[in-house]
Design a protein around this nucleic acid. Structure first.
Lengths: 330, 330
DNA sequence: TTGAAAGCGCTACCAC
DNA sequence: GTGGTAGCGCTTTCAA
């Protein structure tokens, strides 16, 4: 089914059919009607590839995330998607499972699809990837990992601030033995998170002891991390998790080990994903405005090139106090 | 950056570049090398739209889901995606938020993108949509809602069986007052679920009372449903939820209302999504093989047309006993 | 083993 | 208002 067949049936030229389909208001109402009828009768659907090719521009935004199973990424996607729809764009998602080769492949696919913009909401990064997007001249927004370039906007959350707030809060509750549960030792943004935790703790001097455990980015990973933690004689009174998704597993395993939260151990998350409010006990965490990030990413991608707005956007996360934290046991 | 520029730089024709890029093994090693070098140097990425247009076939599978925030759908997506990658296909996802107009639009987008196959994992459906996919001749697999057609495979879970198992189990624990928490009263597959519950309960005679409450497909919807339920004098000893995602909110709100689970009230879910294992208490549910569904969907889509395999695939769900159910209080 | 050229289905420019 | 037509970047015969 092609434009030409429609044109034939409506007894007009392909140019006219194209005009009708694109709402170029220079078509006589009667012919317009005839065209639309033909379209209807033939059950015609314009070939979007041909359209993109001929028009030279695509109306899709690419988005690459590390882990579709972590609700954090889904929320950002929804924000981006909603904003994109408003402007008649659609969003193409790929996921990498935190693997650089997959990331590189996804970026190439996006480039091949000639997306109008690319949002990289990932924790992994590599020089090749940066080189690829830089030389592509594609408007890009990078969350968290950071990358330099004229067409690249960096969107970041002041992770240190969030961590600072968490540790300070726990300290004020009397906690002096803390543990950090994270994931993916190999990825620098995630190592940074761990380091930030360690440094923050260090501010409080030698009196605070700590330990870290890393596992997969999932509730199951949280479970494993707790098991690892409790294998040593070290007994933390607070477990600080790199994100809420892992914290869900941490809560579960602490309970399974007979520890009560927050009675024996306090637990904190990060992100403020939907379920963090529904865990038992509800999770104390740090809010990251996920939908807003999606929204801002779109704005950055679609803004006129002339507009020399900020190429670096910083967000300050806020503490969300709930029931998984309490005074340190004595 | 185009094929032609690459061809020029490598001093060959575009045809040859194309051959190299598609691994058509008839190119001399030396020229092949020259071409690849040019590709590299120019940072060339083939235009996938042009490729699809010229080749006449696409290597992407479309998938439409109702609610990306419900992990059930994400799990099916992962299954499909993994299977697709193995065969060098990629997956394009759209979501509808349970709205028929959005579904129709998404289907049209997929048709416009000339996807090689379409997986509809949705709970909403309408005659127009069915007509659209039927007349498109596109290989399609439909989960749950069902649709007739020569190129359409129906994939369904025997919902009645699962519900039967749940109710019977609760009955055997002594429960005689049950409530059903569901969502989207307007969508027939979801009404069916509710009806199945009511009918199943009816099998146990007049001695079992019940009540239903519907709200959004989310934990928050579960919370609201419980509030609605408890506004009446009816006091269920068991709450049967249409899915795990809502059950998370149900667990939360029962607790908030001072009821203990399973002490005062037993709760069941459906789907066996990842977090159902990590709630407190862990959720008794019914397993739906989500990843396998994605896998089967792909197989159905890519199978040779000649292969007259089953056009209807039925899955029998199994009960997963955990800690959110217990004897009815007396 | 390679090149020339005819499309693939559409948009957009130029005429009429 | 409408039609003719030259591409968009690629694949794929057909010849050489």
């Amino acid at each position: 089914m092609t434009l030409e067949e429609v044109a034939k049936r409506a007894r007009v030229s392909t140019a006219t059919v194209s005009r009708v389909l694109n709402n170029l208001e220079v078509v006589k109402e009667s012919t317009r009607r005839r065209v639309l009828q033909a379209v209807e009768e033939l059950n015609y659907h314009p070939n979007l590839h041909a359209r993109t090719l001929a028009g030279g521009k695509s109306r899709t935004i690419g988005m690459i995330v590390s882990n579709v199973s972590n609700p954090f990424f889904v929320d950002v996607f929804r924000g981006l998607d909603a904003a994109a729809r408003e402007r008649q764009y659609d969003v193409l998602v790929e996921h990498t499972d935190y693997k650089v080769p997959q990331l590189l492949e996804s970026v190439r696919t996006m480039l091949g699809k000639r997306v109008a913009g690319l949002a990289l909401i990932v924790s992994e990064m590599a020089p090749e990837v940066i080189a690829e997007i830089q030389s592509s001249e594609l408007p890009t927004v990078v969350y968290d990992v950071g990358a330099p370039g004229p067409k690249i906007t960096n969107l970041r959350v002041r992770y240190e601030t969030g961590m600072q707030r968490i540790v300070q809060y726990l300290y004020s509750l009397g906690h002096r033995r803390m543990a950090f549960v994270g994931h993916h030792a190999g990825l620098s943004p995630l190592q940074v998170r761990k380091k930030v935790f360690l440094q923050t703790v260090k501010q409080y001097g030698r009196e605070v002891e700590c330990k870290t455990a890393l596992n997969a980015d999932s509730p199951a990973g949280g479970v494993e991390a707790v098991r690892e933690l409790l294998q040593s004689p070290f007994r933390p009174t607070a477990v600080v998790c790199v994100n809420d998704y892992m914290a869900v597993g941490v809560l579960r395993e602490l309970r399974a080990q007979g520890l009560s939260v927050p009675g024996d151990v306090s637990v904190t998350g990060f992100d403020n994903i939907e379920i963090s409010e529904f865990t038992n006990p509800a999770l104390t965490t740090v809010n990251i405005p996920r939908a807003a990030i999606g929204q801002m990413a779109l704005d950055a991608l679609l803004r006129e090139d002339g507009a020399a707005g900020p190429r670096e956007i910083m967000l300050d996360p806020e503490l969300v106090l709930r029931d998984s934290t309490g005074p340190a046991p004595r």
